[in-house]
């Protein structure tokens, strides 16, 4: 099925965009914005708002009809392969199929100090009513917190016999998050540990696609809740027929 953005009529293709141009406000700036919208593939662009920001830059809000459409038939959504269960269902699935808890080590690596996402997934309290992995007997969690060097993370994973490693990356500048994530994979491979752990990353700039490209088993973006990560971990462990699991 071919679809377009929807405003109030099917197929109208309506989108809103906002951006800044390095021009002082005036007829020339408005025309520049309109031309740019046309080049973006927006028919009949309407410059709804233009505002000089006082320093030779103008802000625009534009509505237009998108020329392009997308065919949903040949789409492959970038998402890790798992059935999203509730945390209770995850617990039951682990109990029946693994017979022991999944040991999870998590950290914000490198210089990253932002643990909101990691805590939301790992800690008992979770976030916004979604309890974290720690709340389920299916998991034994070790949340190492922020600014953990990759070497320390790997050492801790070995120490506690981790089945899975979760890495959260929030802050970035000049793509440092990608560098840090890649370094961890290299380190695990160098130590011969890569295939022995389920490796997962998450954060506002992480997609499953990016994660796989970097050598991770799964990636989770913004809005992920703990039961999704939990579902993936348990189902991936079952898929791998992890040694030590009581019932396979």
């Amino acid at each position: 099925m071919k679809i377009k953005p929807y405003g109030d009529t099917t197929g109208d293709g309506k989108v809103q965009v906002s951006f800044t141009l390095p021009l002082a406000d005036g007829p020339q700036a408005v025309e520049a914005a309109r031309r740019l919208a046309l080049s973006m593939g927006l028919d009949n662009p309407l410059v709804a708002h233009h505002q000089d920001m006082g320093v030779g830059y103008t802000f625009f809000i534009i509505y237009g009809s998108c020329r392009h459409e997308v065919d949903t038939d040949d789409l492959q959504a970038s998402q890790a392969d798992f059935h999203h269960l509730t945390m209770d269902e995850v617990t039951a699935q682990a109990r029946e199929n693994l017979g022991r808890p999944v040991v999870v080590v998590g950290a914000c690596t490198g210089s990253d100090t932002h643990t909101v996402g990691l805590d939301a997934i790992m800690n008992r309290k979770g976030f916004h009513g979604h309890y974290g992995l720690e709340s389920s007997p299916a998991f034994v969690t070790h949340n190492l917190g922020s600014q953990v060097p990759n070497e320390v993370l790997v050492a801790r994973a070995v120490e506690v016999g981790a089945d899975a490693i979760l890495v959260s990356k929030v802050v970035t500048q000049k793509n440092i998050h990608v560098t840090d994530l890649t370094e961890l994979v290299d380190l695990l491979e160098a130590e011969g540990l890569r295939d022995r752990v389920v490796l997962v990353c998450g954060g506002p700039r992480i997609s499953h696609e990016l994660a796989v490209e970097l050598g991770y088993d799964a990636g989770f973006g913004p809005g992920t809740v703990a039961s999704e990560v939990g579902s993936f971990l348990v189902q991936e462990m079952i898929r791998r027929r992890v040694p030590g699991a009581a019932v396979l």
Binding site: S18, F19, T20, Q51, M53, V55, Y57, F59, Q173, P204
Partner: peptide, 10 residues
């Protein structure tokens, strides 16, 4: 999402 753009700050 990101460190603020000029327009975000505005």
């Amino acid at each position: 999402i990101h460190t603020p753009f000029l327009q975000d700050r505005y």
